[in-house]
Simulated scan of single mutants.
Amino acid sequence: MSGNDRREHIRTAMTAKVKVVHPEYGEFTFSTRDISDGGVFVIVESEPFTPQIGEHVTVQVQGLPVPAPVLDMVVVRKTNDGYGLQFDHEGE
């Protein structure tokens, strides 16, 4: 890792539709920008989705031939165009 990039995992550009459920804001469908072994970045445009860093959500990939697993994730980063979500391994 160099400079200000403190990422532990290599990011891979990947566009997929994901359902994100927040306990207060409800259910949304977003597109991903990238994914890594540690998490995923979701692009949020004009939806009323404004979680705080540290809040928990569930995420499920959409559009597969069989239902994808529902994953517990934590909001770890906010940018102008979306949120970085990290896999929540506390429940394992």
Rank of each mutant, 00 (worst) to 15 (best):
residue 89 H to D: 12
residue 78 K to E: 13
residue 76 V to M: 02
residue 40 V to G: 03
residue 79 T to S: 06
residue 31 S to Y: 12
residue 52 Q to R: 14
residue 46 S to H: 13
residue 51 P to V: 03
residue 56 H to I: 14
residue 92 E to K: 15
residue 16 A to I: 11
residue 76 V to S: 01
residue 13 A to T: 12
residue 81 D to K: 09
residue 57 V to I: 09
residue 68 A to M: 00
residue 71 L to I: 13
residue 61 V to T: 09
residue 45 E to C: 06
residue 5 D to E: 15
residue 82 G to I: 07
residue 38 G to D: 02
residue 72 D to T: 09
residue 2 S to L: 13
residue 32 T to S: 10
residue 64 L to A: 00
residue 80 N to I: 05
residue 39 G to K: 05
residue 19 K to P: 00
residue 84 G to T: 08
residue 81 D to I: 11
residue 43 I to R: 14
residue 70 V to R: 14
residue 52 Q to G: 10
residue 39 G to Y: 03
residue 20 V to A: 02
residue 42 V to K: 05
residue 45 E to N: 15
residue 80 N to W: 08
residue 49 F to G: 00
residue 81 D to E: 11
residue 9 H to Q: 05
residue 3 G to D: 11
residue 20 V to E: 04
residue 38 G to S: 06
residue 7 R to L: 07
residue 53 I to A: 04
residue 59 V to D: 00
residue 66 V to S: 08
residue 24 E to K: 15
residue 91 G to T: 14
residue 72 D to E: 12
residue 91 G to L: 14
residue 83 Y to C: 00
residue 50 T to Y: 13
residue 45 E to K: 15
residue 44 V to A: 04
residue 45 E to Q: 14
residue 30 F to Q: 04
residue 64 L to N: 02
residue 56 H to W: 06
residue 52 Q to K: 15
residue 34 D to K: 01
residue 87 F to L: 11
residue 4 N to M: 15
residue 41 F to K: 06
residue 78 K to V: 11
residue 10 I to W: 09
residue 64 L to S: 03
residue 65 P to E: 03
residue 22 H to P: 10
residue 44 V to D: 03
residue 90 E to C: 08
residue 83 Y to M: 03
residue 78 K to T: 08
residue 46 S to E: 12
residue 29 T to E: 10
residue 86 Q to I: 10
residue 44 V to Q: 07
residue 50 T to I: 11
residue 85 L to A: 02
residue 84 G to P: 10
residue 48 P to K: 06
residue 66 V to E: 10
residue 30 F to L: 04
residue 31 S to F: 11
residue 74 V to W: 05
residue 70 V to P: 00
residue 58 T to S: 06
residue 72 D to K: 13
residue 61 V to I: 10
residue 21 V to K: 12
residue 91 G to A: 13
residue 87 F to S: 09
residue 60 Q to S: 06
residue 36 S to T: 13
residue 76 V to T: 09
